[in-house]
Amino acid sequence: MATKLSLNLQIWRQAGPDKPGKMVDYKLNDVSPDMSFLEMLDVLNDDLLQKGEEPVEFDNDCREGICGMCSLVINGVAHGPQKGTATCQLHMRKFKDGETVTIEPFRAKAFPVVKDLVVDRGAFDRIIAAGGYISINAGGAPDANAIPIPKEYADEAMDAAACIGCGACVAACPNASASLFVSAKISQLALLPQGQPERYRRATSMVAQMDAEGFGDCSNHAECEAVCPKEISIAHIARMKRDYLRSVFK
């Protein structure tokens, strides 16, 4: 059994959307290296409850790295130190005994804080609603094998489609741009024959919605790619920009 860790936690506490927030220090002992990061926060919350203090609110659901509900900026990095890993899949063996760990919400103008570490990512739904779909009603689809799709295209579409919509790309970007998220959807659908009819309209409307929500522009820092738990490539942003330009001149 590996040795237990003692940690100095510095956590962002904020009572509500319009309330002031601040970093608060907590000491946590006996942390097992086999715990997940969120299980460590569960233990902290149990301690706080027993002491009559308010537990720290944080979003989470599947705890398997796929629903995109968990977030957190850990030691300044969205989803923490392990590459290609969402916070819920990060384990405490990545931290050292005695380490100070800062935990903050995903910060962006378009992601207002709800409480503590919980933010509102409703803007992502509205961007998808603006065009992140293929217009087809249930019932009218042709046979699934009617249109062969080269494996390479299908695979690349899948690479893009792996996006879990967590918003780490926004939290990491100096401009709080949602370009990686938006481009992943645009790129997935642009790579498939089914996505062609609405391809350019989609690029225009999704990008317009991203701007309207208050996300910034992309200036090629590539911080998004570095923190993406699904390691989605910024090549998709390039495809989005090409499609967007083409749509302007169409």
Binding site: I134, I136, A138, A141, P142, D143, A144, K151, A154, Q194
Partner: peptide, 22 residues
């Protein structure tokens, strides 16, 4: 069978063979 048709039409990137079929 209709479900697979519907999902492919929506742009679900199912795994494919080299020939392009599912």
């Amino acid at each position: 069978a209709n479900i697979i048709d519907q999902c492919v039409a929506q742009g679900v990137p199912f795994a494919r063979e080299y020939g392009g079929l599912l």
